[in-house]
């Protein structure tokens, strides 16, 4: 009886299933984790509503196209326009908040977050579109299966890589030579005050990031990526720092001869295991990832020397 009804009202089923799965994709990708964003209820409501709208737009387009109403596709471009606005909104909010952070996220990290927010909405549209398509094409049960498959696929694609994929993270001792602070053999900074030196030696944790290949060297040298590491560790473990204490500064410096990255963090809570894990789990920023080896290989293939 129920199944018969679903067959009889194919278009309605397509729209409802499509919207539901589009929304479901957005819900599963809405993270409230240590980054605390968007953890506040209002942020969540904004993104859930947009997810619903994305799902609805994606699924409604399909029955329209089946009825040879081809202008329906312009609907989707309208949606794209809307979601570019989402990216702007995220960027503006985060940039405004960033000025008030003890350890700012940095422009590259903010841009990365904003892009992800936009991308998630497109995935919601795509899921809704394909689900709705299969319902109309074959039947509601195929739509259901495709929806579930896409749910898994979308989450898989949005995972992204982490620092641990491109670099070996090692804890390294901090040492002072006069006023000069080193982590391992990487020079960090000159600390003038005895008081600051004591605090850094007591509370600081040092890490050395060794890039796994030449591409990784370029990526961890990126200033935005370094700032993201400092911000994430400071968010997870707190930071021993205040406005007006410029010498207590978590810092990341490159050992130029080796390409290794030396990092000093000053956590509120000196838990080396957690600090180690949080450095490893920092997301790789899209803006920082470079593939120079691939680019060079291609260019030599195109122009043989001699």
């Amino acid at each position: 009886m129920m199944l018969g009804w679903l067959h009889a009202h194919k278009e309605l089923t397509a729209v409802v299933l499509g919207t539901a799965f589009g929304m479901a994709v957005r819900v599963t990708m809405l993270r409230s984790d240590y980054r605390q964003y968007p953890a506040y209820p209002h942020g969540k409501i904004i993104h859930l509503s947009l997810g619903l709208i994305a799902g609805a737009l994606g699924s409604v387009a399909v029955p329209a196209l089946y009825n040879k109403d081809y202008t329906a596709i312009t609907f989707l471009s309208l949606a794209a326009q809307q979601f570019r606005e989402v990216r702007n909104m995220e960027r503006n909010t985060l940039t405004a908040i960033d000025k008030m952070e003890l350890i700012p996220r940095g422009a590259a990290y903010i841009e990365g977050i904003a892009v992800v927010f936009e991308g998630r909405n497109y995935l919601a549209i795509l899921t809704a579109f394909i689900t709705s398509n299969f319902v109309l094409w074959i039947g509601w049960w195929v739509g259901l299966i495709m929806g579930l498959v896409l749910l898994v696929v979308a989450n898989y694609f949005m995972k992204g890589k982490k620092i641990s994929h491109i670099a070996d993270v090692q804890m390294a001792p901090l040492k002072l030579e006069g006023p000069n602070l080193f982590v391992g053999d990487v020079y960090l900074m000159n600390v003038g005050l005895d008081e600051s030196r004591n605090i850094i030696m007591q509370l600081g944790i040092g890490f050395i990031l060794t890039p796994k290949n030449d591409d990784a060297k370029v990526t961890i040298a990126n200033l935005g990526q370094r700032q993201a590491i400092l911000h994430d560790v400071s968010t997870r473990l707190g930071v021993y720092r205040d406005d007006g204490d410029p010498s207590l500064l978590p810092i990341a410096k490159l050992g130029l001869p080796t390409g290794k990255l030396g990092i000093l963090v000053l956590p509120r809570e000196k838990d080396t295991d957690k600090a180690y894990q949080s450095v490893r789990n920092v997301p790789l920023l899209e803006a920082a990832v470079r593939m120079p080896t691939e680019a060079n290989r291609k260019s030599t293939e195109a122009n043989p020397s001699g």
């Binding site: 006069g178 006023p179 000159n190 600390v191 003038g192 005050l193 008081e195 406005d243 007006g244 204490d245 410029p246 010498s247 500064l249």
Partner: peptide, 13 residues
């Protein structure tokens, strides 16, 4: 120390 706090600038030796 005083100058570092008052000026919000780093003291380097």
């Amino acid at each position: 120390h005083l100058l570092e706090k008052v000026m919000d600038c780093s003291a380097h030796s």
